[in-house]
Design a binder for these strands. Structure first.
Length: 276
DNA sequence: TACGGACCTTTC
DNA sequence: AAAGGTCCGT
């Protein structure tokens, strides 16, 4: 539980004093207290909203078992069984713009940028201090200057550009409709957006559209991949071709669970980092 | 195709 | 310097 809210999948969650987590996802806010195996939850939403967010319909035990039988080499890195999960955004538009903020960036700043965008959205039911992430229409009305002065850097130009293009394609409904496409098609649509490359497209496909076979390869995943699978590539940069090579290999190996297996590589990175 | 560098800004 | 990249030059 603790890990998955700080593992770079979502950026609107924070740990309050003690073991209480609060966060916003789509139209819902949550205040969660974890006691052993039980969650005490305060929310404006339904139980099903939280179940969806944590993808509780997927049994971590089953997924881990499946990953182990396909890739026993990941056994040392499945310690995430204690709570690291692949999360699912309620709103793919929120996911898309969140990950636009994430490119070549670090977590504290990503969170600040997402927080800024969220101030532009409609109020959340029953919670005064936070707002829902805005939709395409509102985001298309944001100016570059506004985002510049809010510290968005060069993304100040790309975000409104993407919003305008999305609006041309049908706005929120277009983004939501990508959930019903095949993974490859959805990914291609996303990559056709400026500032969205393979990595962001795969993050959006995995966390926002629910494509479990998606494998986002960032610099940390790439380093883990070279340690475990491609020692010959150690130290080499992640070119588009190597990205595809590894993603294809990993998808073939783990199928619909590739996105979860990829979390094991993230965990390997954590262990590797801690051991230094 | 495959590298190098630029791009905004903050943080380690 | 590096940051969970992308794009545009060689």
């Amino acid at each position: 539980m603790g890990l998955c809210l700080t593992s770079g999948q979502v950026f609107r969650w924070s740990r309050n004093a003690s073991d209480v987590w609060t966060g916003v996802d789509g139209p819902n806010w949550f205040r969660i207290l974890q006691l052993e195996e039980r969650l005490i939850v305060e929310t404006n939403g339904q139980t099903s909203d939280l179940e969806r967010f944590f993808q509780l319909h997927l049994s971590a035990r089953d997924v881990i078992h499946s990953i182990l039988s396909a890739g026993p080499e990941l056994e040392p890195y499945l310690g995430f069984g204690r709570g690291l999960r692949v999360l699912r955004y309620a709103d793919p538009v929120e996911c898309l713009f969140t990950f636009l903020c994430s490119a070549n960036n670090h977590v504290p700043r990503i969170s600040a940028m997402v927080r800024h965008l969220a101030t532009l959205g409609p109020p959340l039911e029953g919670l005064a201090e936070q707002r829902r992430f805005p939709g395409v229409e509102r985001l298309a009305a944001v100016t570059e200057e506004e985002l510049r002065s809010a510290g968005f850097g060069y993304r100040a130009a790309s975000l409104p550009k993407v919003a305008a293009l999305l609006r041309e394609r049908g706005g929120d409904a277009y983004v939501w409709s990508l959930q019903d496409a095949e993974y490859e098609e959805a990914r291609d649509e996303l990559i056709s957006l400026p500032s969205v490359g393979p990595k962001l497209a795969d993050c959006i496909a995995l966390f926002g559209l629910g494509f479990g076979e998606s494998v986002p390869v960032d610099t940390h995943i790439w380093k883990a991949a070279t340690r475990i699978y491609f020692p010959n590539y150690a130290g080499l940069s992640l070119t588009p071709q190597k990205y595809e090579e590894f993603a294809t290999f990993f998808k073939k190996r783990f199928g619909a669970n590739a996105g979860w297996a990829h979390q094991a590589l993230f965990y390997e990175g954590l262990l590797n980092w801690r051991s230094r």
